[in-house]
Amino acid sequence: MPAGQPKQRQIAFKQKQKQALYNLIKECYQEYSWSIEWMCRQARIARSAYCKWLDHKPSQRELRDQKILERIKEIAKSNNSLFGSPKMTMALNNELAAGETKIYRRTVARLMCVNGIYTSKARFNKIYRYKASRPEETAENILHRNFNASSPNEKWCTDITEEKIPEIFQRIFLCTIFDLYDRFPVGYALSKHNDTALVNAALSNAWKKEPDSHAMLHSDRGFQFTRAPFKHELEEHGMSQSMSRVGRCIDNGPMEGWQGLIKEIRAVLYPNVNSYEKMKTAFKASIAYYIHHDPQERFNGKTAGQVRKEAKDNPDQAAAYPIKQDKRYIAFWKKIKAKKKQLV
């Protein structure tokens, strides 16, 4: 076994080696009538261990692991190994019928590790260069990084992202209207051009799906969102506007994170795209996959589509899904506050 491999895989590799040796002894005994005791002595294994293996029957755990592994392989094959162990666990539990035993992440991680099943998502460091703009209209940061929402259509975010199309040196632009309650893409539009028409199309699609929405819309200070006509259009629909601070992309963090996620899903599910129309189709299919098949830890393994449907079916009893604050951030800000007190 190559050095540096995970411990679980090393253990599994040793077990497979032993099973192969046991099978060899069994075959030699059946075909050549060689002495089992002599073969065990030559292989430096206990005869009792061989006899125990010979009479072994799969345990309930082994049978369950085999069943889980088969489903893991099916899911990995269906989405080009898009999921790591956390999302694979949520996807498996999302399929369980009422009363079935919950599958734990450690079990899934072990089975994936031993069988060499890994997520094919890759993260790349990109350098973005932004051009300064002169906005016609600006708005205060009303959202103020409060990304929690108690019901659908309370807080919307929007932004534009781009993707380069290989071989033809062309770009495609995606503008999305994103609901902070259920991380649901209410409306989106794709175009060859990063212009005001792209934003208008995405917003129109959102209004078609949610005509009665008066959500607050948060964006960055891109020229598409700082135009006076855009602001007036929001006001006509009874929507307030909020904007990130200059150079503070974290103020629109969930939207930025979702854009990166949807591009990763597209790259995994549809890696070989070489035309604008194919890329457009790939993005639409990836967004549909995200809505219906991508489980979210924050939603207890449910998809964005499931959470939205539940909230729509029972608007008076919409479940709360508060964002869990990272312990590292809590510890970091405690240290900052402590240092400030010392300076005073």
Rank of each mutant, 00 (worst) to 15 (best):
M1C: 12
G4H: 05
K7V: 10
Q15D: 13
K16H: 06
K16L: 08
K18D: 13
Q19L: 10
C28V: 14
Y29W: 06
Y29L: 07
Y32H: 10
W34D: 02
C40F: 03
Q42Y: 13
Y50R: 04
Y50H: 02
K52E: 10
L54C: 04
K57M: 11
S59D: 07
E62D: 12
Q66G: 13
K67N: 11
K73G: 10
E74V: 09
A76V: 10
G84V: 06
T89Q: 04
K102E: 15
I103D: 03
R105F: 09
T107P: 11
T107K: 12
M112C: 08
C113L: 09
T119I: 04
S120M: 12
S120D: 14
A122L: 12
F124M: 12
N125F: 11
Y128E: 13
Y130T: 10
S133W: 08
E136Y: 07
N141E: 05
R145T: 07
N148M: 09
E154D: 11
K155R: 09
W156Y: 12
E163V: 15
I165H: 00
I168T: 04
F184M: 04
A189S: 14
L198R: 01
N200T: 14
W207P: 00
K208L: 10
M216Q: 12
H237L: 08
Q241L: 07
G247M: 05
G253F: 06
G253S: 12
M255G: 03
G257E: 09
E264T: 09
L269D: 01
V273D: 02
M279N: 00
M279T: 02
K284D: 06
A285W: 02
Y290P: 01
I291M: 04
H293V: 10
R298C: 06
R298E: 12
T303P: 02
Q306V: 00
K309W: 13
E310T: 03
E310R: 06
K312L: 05
D316Y: 10
A318F: 05
A318R: 00
A320K: 14
Y321K: 08
Q325V: 14
R328M: 08
Y329R: 11
I330A: 13
K339H: 13
K340E: 12
